[in-house]
């Protein structure tokens, strides 16, 4: 590690980012704080092995990811009963009793590509991810954001393939809906056009 990287500065530079990473996956502030502390301590021990090929943040997140996975594994052993619970049974239903759309997706007036350079989009995405229910969030984030194989996620959380598919489906439904309300939807965009900068948001044609 370069001389400019004083371990005491790590906490200021990366503390919040690492904490949010851990909190989004673990949901317990105490567990997240412990995982962050363990990460910094392990980084300190392994300082000599950091070769500077990746950014300091990427290196630290790599260590933290293992800590988070360990915690999730332990949590799954401690809470066997959680395994049987159907994810999302308490959420408002998007489908009627026969499985037909009750809350069908609406047209988006802007696409995620329009938001890539927009800080507000990332904030909305971040907020929506943090609102996913606990068991669903860890499965979805490990798979979609951390890029773990489905079989690894099943093993870490102690769930069946069928249960993982259900959680992923539920996560996609909830996330899509949350972003529709907070970013993509007609209501949200016309709100912003009225209140902020009219004319700046190009409307897409009907799809």
């Amino acid at each position: 590690m370069s001389d400019s990287s004083d371990p005491e500065l790590w906490v200021d530079r990366h503390g919040d980012g690492l904490y949010r990473y851990a909190l989004s996956r673990l949901r317990s502030p105490e567990q997240a704080a412990d995982a962050v502390q363990e990460t910094f301590m392990e980084a300190l021990r392994r300082r000599g092995t950091y070769e500077g090929r990746s950014s300091e943040r990427t290196w630290l997140i790599g260590i933290l990811r293992h800590k988070v996975i360990d915690q999730l594994r332990r949590a799954c052993r401690d809470r066997q009963d959680e395994r049987a619970r159907e994810p999302g049974e308490t959420e408002a239903s998007f489908f009627d009793r026969k499985g037909h759309w009750r809350l069908a997706p609406t047209r988006w007036v802007r696409s995620p590509a329009d938001g890539i350079e927009n800080g507000e989009f990332w904030e909305a995405l971040n907020r929506c991810l943090s609102r996913l229910p606990e068991g669903i969030a860890s499965a979805f984030l490990l798979r979609e954001l951390d890029g773990l194989e489905a079989s690894q996620v099943q093993e870490i959380l102690g769930i069946t393939p069928e249960n993982l598919w259900k959680r992923m489906h539920r996560a996609r439904i909830l996330l899509r809906r949350c972003l529709e309300i907070n970013w993509f939807g007609e209501a949200k965009v016309s709100d912003q056009v009225r209140t902020q900068n009219p004319g700046q948001l190009a409307r897409k044609g009907p799809d």
Binding site: H14, D16, R57, P112, W122, R172
Partner: peptide, 26 residues
């Protein structure tokens, strides 16, 4: 959902880029 997956890939690299979003703080 497919479009969102593309955005999420970008989001995970932002995660590691050091750009801190607002949200809970340590």
């Amino acid at each position: 959902v497919g479009e969102l997956r593309v955005a999420l890939k970008r989001f995970s690299s932002e995660d590691e880029s050091g750009r801190d979003l607002t949200g809970p703080r340590l």
